[in-house]
Amino acid sequence: MKFRAEIDVMPLQELLDPQGKAVHLGLSNLGIKNVKDVRIGKHISIEIEADTQEEAQAQVDTACKKLLANPVMEYYECMLIPMLEAQTTTHA
């Protein structure tokens, strides 16, 4: 079975995010003055083959914990979606 994992990696809430701060300023310069906060992270999309959803989930969790996110500075959220054959080449 094929699965797609959609993973968001974000800087921990308690950490200063200088990138987000700079973009916040940019938004203000654009004229959008009512922005309260900007945080910038990354989105990672993984296609993975596994026999079961549990197996895919376990592997994606390992990937997130060991490589994709560093728990000292980041947290992650992950969504695992079973893929139909037709979806394997094009993303929705």
């Binding site: 950490l15 200063l16 200088p18 990138q19 701060k21 700079a22 560093n70 000292v72 500075m73």
Partner: peptide, 17 residues
């Protein structure tokens, strides 16, 4: 070495970006 867990902590983006 911090990523490998051989040293404690992490190195973040400089605060002035």
């Amino acid at each position: 070495l911090t990523e490998a867990g051989l040293l404690p902590g992490a190195l973040l983006r400089n605060n002035n970006q």
